[in-house]
Amino acid sequence: MISGLAGAFLLLGTLACDGGEVALTAKREHLEAFADMLVPADNPATLEGVALGRDLFFDPLLSADSTISCGTCHRPELAFSDGLPLSRGIGGRLGRRNTPGLANVGYLHQHLFWDGRAVGLEAQALHPIAEPHEMGGDWATVLGKLRRHPDYWPRFRSAFGLGSPDQLEASHVGKALAQFQRTLVSSDSKYDRVQRGEAVFSTAEALGEAIFFDFADDPEGPYAGLPTGECAHCHTPPHFTNQRFFNNGLDAAAHLEDFGDPGRGGITGSKAELGLFRAPGLRNVALTAPYMHDGRMATLEEVVAHYNGGGEYAENKSANVFPLGLDSVQATALVAFLQTLTDSSFVTQSIMLLR
């Protein structure tokens, strides 16, 4: 099992762990632009833990009727998204929100989910299993399955030093899933190669980069006078998110209580945070359509058009969302830049996990 996992990751890189090294879907030398991944002290990566998490991720056993897995909604070929506006759970139940991709999720150590209801991967991994509109299970039943399973129980025992099946808890499942997800590292897009001096942007991509990063703010630079996109305020490199919550002008709201989906405010109880959602990471964004928390936009062109138009009024709309004044050439260039965030090697290696 361990050698199979190592083969799937092609041993392209390593993550330090207790008693060995865990292969990553990225080469070690490609991670120099990234800060060290923050790993909880009580869940260090191990070969056994990552392998266990990988198999649990793709196993429908964790759902109430054993029909869907984490991998059903997080498909490797779509950078671990699902291509649907809203996720679908057991029995075809319609979810509340769009499924985000998981590239570099291990680096996103703050609040996860669109509304930030989980702090850290270990906590995030526990939610879908018990959600009625997702995997629809209950932890007593799921743990009963795992404690009786002839393969999984011995592996939990080995990975976490458990003495008897009754010691297996939901937290151990969350820890195994988190260990696996921390190996899903994307760092070899064209954008990354340009930053390393291994490639050069096309004219359109370079123009899009200038708009994305507001190069026009430099009055002496070559892009002076160009409209700014204001994108990097929220989508900050290297993971293209600042992990914060914003109202990006999707819906008009005369009163903050008018939002159909309360977003972050539904978790915190803060009126000022109603209608705010977490800024998603943009790595592999060209593969994770449709877009926004409710999947309402089918293409990147629609996304750019939304921001170019300045969005709808709400009292708490982000100050960075206003009419941009991009012409058609500039809007197309911005899309071209976003497409440089696609890491085809990440996708190829991730698909191999299913073999």
Rank of each mutant, 00 (worst) to 15 (best):
D343T: 09
A272V: 11
F156N: 00
L52W: 08
L274M: 14
P262Q: 05
V303A: 01
Q330Y: 04
G144I: 03
L354P: 03
G281S: 13
P150K: 14
L207D: 04
E209I: 00
Q339Y: 01
S189T: 07
A286M: 01
L24M: 14
D138N: 13
V347G: 04
L143F: 03
L78I: 08
T228K: 15
E48G: 01
G249D: 11
R155D: 10
N248P: 10
L24G: 13
H255D: 13
W139S: 00
G4K: 12
T183A: 11
G91S: 09
L184M: 07
Q339N: 13
L324P: 01
G311Q: 14
G144D: 15
L38F: 01
P238L: 09
F180N: 06
R355K: 08
A305M: 04
P290G: 12
R93G: 12
V194G: 06
H235N: 06
S189E: 05
S164Q: 11
T14D: 07
A253C: 14
A254F: 12
L102R: 12
G265E: 03
S164N: 02
A252L: 07
S270V: 00
D327W: 07
A336R: 11
E302M: 11
E169W: 00
F58G: 02
T141F: 00
G92R: 02
N98Q: 13
G281H: 09
S87H: 12
K190C: 03
P280M: 08
Q179K: 05
G13T: 05
S66E: 13
G106P: 12
R355Q: 10
A224S: 14
D327F: 02
W114K: 12
D59S: 11
L162I: 14
R93A: 15
L168S: 00
G163Y: 01
D115R: 09
W153V: 01
A16K: 11
L47F: 00
D343Y: 05
F80S: 07
E29C: 12
R264F: 01
A253N: 08
S187K: 01
T332P: 06
V200K: 01
H233S: 10
L146C: 05
T203D: 08
G116L: 06
F213W: 01
G116K: 06
A8G: 06
G265A: 06
G265C: 04
S350F: 11
C17A: 15
N248S: 11
A79V: 12
G106N: 02
A204Y: 03
Y307R: 02
L12T: 12
G136V: 05
F213Y: 10
E77C: 02
P85V: 08
G163T: 09
P323I: 02
N316Q: 11
A140K: 14
V194N: 09
V347T: 13
A333T: 03
S270G: 14
Q339V: 04
G19N: 08
S3F: 08
G309L: 12
Y107Q: 09
H306V: 04
